[in-house]
Design a protein around this nucleic acid. Sequence first.
DNA 1: ATTATGATGCTCT
DNA 2: GAGCATCATAATT
Length: 221
Amino acid sequence: MKTGQKAPLPEPPDPPEGPSARRLLTGDLDLPAVELAQRLIGVMLLCEGVGGVISETEAYGRDDAASHSFRGPTLRNRSMFAGAGAVYVYRSYGLHWCFNIVARDAGAVLIRALEPRSGVDLMRQRRGRTDHLATGPGRLAQALAINIRHDGHDATAEPFALLDRLQEPDILMGPRIGINRERDRPWRFGLKGSRWLSRPIPAGGEPIAASVPRKEWESLP
DNA sequence: ATTATGATGCTCT
DNA sequence: GAGCATCATAATT
């Protein structure tokens, strides 16, 4: 019998998604932030061919005090006002880059984690380690070499690619991480059962029907 | 296992 | 000067 030792994690194989997945277009991204955040779970994100399957997202709405767009356009957040499908990149805590895809009406979806699938060796090299390659927004950006120079680019065009999922995933929801305002909104979404999450989704964050928006979350009290 | 803390740069008050 | 949509390391149960 085994001791309590945890088994080393097998590294992910290359391209299971294959070339058959449809590439998402700007029109696919023109959704309210809460819907887009769910729509992107299971989608493959690549930057110059390096990336994997999105496993965790967070939605930030226009009328959401936790959102960078809440107080209107500024130099930093101008990409959030560039229309759905734009890339919004900002620096976090002075050290890390965070990658967002802009949703409808100056909302955005923070891509918080993905399952490495393509270019894993390069991701390891950039991260300087073999595990925890893209679980967490700062780690993800480092692994994909995303930085401020990508701000304002089109998420559906080179160097980026979004390849659609082939099946509707089961999605968990929970409170967003690292914010102090609007803590009550369960706008963090994760692929059910995935180990590629920055943190587990707390129990009680019940599964929701994949990609079905809940209107009651969309309006402010 | 969980909690604390320092690093670091930019935007807005 | 305050406050971050964070992460890695160290200290502590």
